[in-house]
């Protein structure tokens, strides 16, 4: 029993240390930013507005594709995960097409020397169905860095994911606080 407790304590300590290391390792995010959404939810608009009010340069294009990257001078690509049926319907797309577009885009951005960030900033409201899950899985898998708000990670999903995949995670209080994190 006692042994178990000690082991658990050590494990916790290791986890804490690891988490600390991970965030210490997190490369500083650097603008100008290019933002898009994987699932046509308003996350990308919100991210740009949050950046804007913090005085950070960010361009947003919900239909950004790999070939269109060529002319951009951005240093970091941020892809927000989580889907909107209304949004995808309006844009005449679906979650599979979105994932295809975004994974190609993230690949191209990395080849072009950009930092690729996978973000989830609209909270639990965008973690409800299988489309959300697919979008999150694809975006986080292809990202160098994970950026989430506290509500999105309220069950610890992203922290766990980042730990398991050895990706640095940046966690901010809410969407409004993202702007300052991008400075």
């Amino acid at each position: 029993m006692k042994k178990n407790a000690t082991a658990l304590f050590c494990l916790c300590l290791a986890a804490l240390l690891f988490a600390g290391m991970a965030s210490a390792e997190a490369p500083k995010l650097e603008g100008p930013y290019l933002v898009t959404t994987c699932g046509q939810s308003p996350g990308a608009v919100m991210l740009r507005m949050s950046a804007l009010q913090a005085g950070v340069q960010a361009e947003h294009d919900n239909a950004l594709s790999a070939p269109a990257l060529a002319g951009k001078k951005a240093k970091t690509l941020i892809v927000t995960a989580g889907t909107s049926m209304k949004g995808m319907g309006a844009a005449g797309t679906n979650v599979n097409k979105e994932i295809e577009r975004c994974t190609a885009l993230m690949e191209a951005a990395r080849s072009a020397g950009m930092t690729v960030v996978g973000a989830h900033i609209e909270g639990m409201a965008r973690r409800t169905d299988s489309s959300d899950e697919a979008s999150i899985e694809a975006v986080m898998g292809a990202a160098d860095i994970i950026l989430v708000v506290e509500d999105s990670d309220s069950d610890g999903f992203f922290t766990r994911y980042a730990g398991e995949h050895g990706k640095p995670i940046v966690k901010v209080k809410d969407a409004l606080a993202i702007g300052n994190a991008l400075k």
């Binding site: 308003p42 919100m46 209304k86 309006a90 909270g123 509500d151 809410d174 969407a175 409004l176």
Partner: peptide, 26 residues
Amino acid sequence: AAMASMMLTSQSFDVPIGMEFSPKAL
């Protein structure tokens, strides 16, 4: 709407308020 929903979620509401695009075809 993006700014308003972020401000409300950050400063006022306990349960966040989101934002949705109005579908063009509905």
